[in-house]
């Protein structure tokens, strides 16, 4: 059943966000600390466990894959809801602060990445794959 997959995804999200809120409270921070990341870990663990197999295979998996394929459209809607006027009207100070921070961090990506284990490049995306539901991490 498709709803089983959706429910598992929702359950992981809620638990993760809840733990993130608790973590924020614990640290005395007015923000959710890593809620989404914890939810993602839960989903990864669940899809690897025997117990949850019926929830992540066959029909049920379609319920998760649907949302993962809806991700880019959601991001497009998110972009359309940004306060772009504020970014443009913030003037030179905002522009410089934001842009320089971005450029410097871009430059640091290869530096830090070299410190860790070398990653293997993913195989190139073929254009046909764009029409299929995204399969993150699949080889």
């Amino acid at each position: 059943m498709i709803i089983y997959g959706v429910a598992l995804l929702s359950g992981c999200s809620l638990v993760g966000l809840f733990v993130g809120e608790l973590l924020g409270k614990l640290l005395g921070v007015q923000a959710n600390v890593g809620g989404v990341g914890i939810a993602m870990l839960l989903l990864v663990l669940a899809s690897g466990s025997k117990l949850c197999q019926p929830l992540v295979s066959g029909e049920s998996a379609t319920g998760i894959k649907f949302w993962s394929a809806m991700y880019i459209p959601i991001i497009v809607a998110m972009a359309a809801g940004q306060n772009v006027v504020a970014a443009v009207d913030g003037g030179m100070l905002a522009l410089l602060a934001g842009a320089l921070a971005t450029v410097l961090c871009f430059l640091l990506v290869p530096v830090l990445a070299r410190m860790g284990p070398q990653g293997v490049p993913l195989p190139p995306l073929d254009t046909a794959a764009d029409d299929k539901p995204a399969q993150p991490g699949s080889r």
Partner: peptide, 21 residues
């Protein structure tokens, strides 16, 4: 609503499906 925090986070979590620990 579609691009708000709720669905954005939900969508991000769903992309973890298939990730190798």
């Amino acid at each position: 609503l579609m691009g708000g925090g709720m669905l954005r986070d939900f969508g991000i979590v769903s992309t973890a499906f298939g990730v190798q620990l």
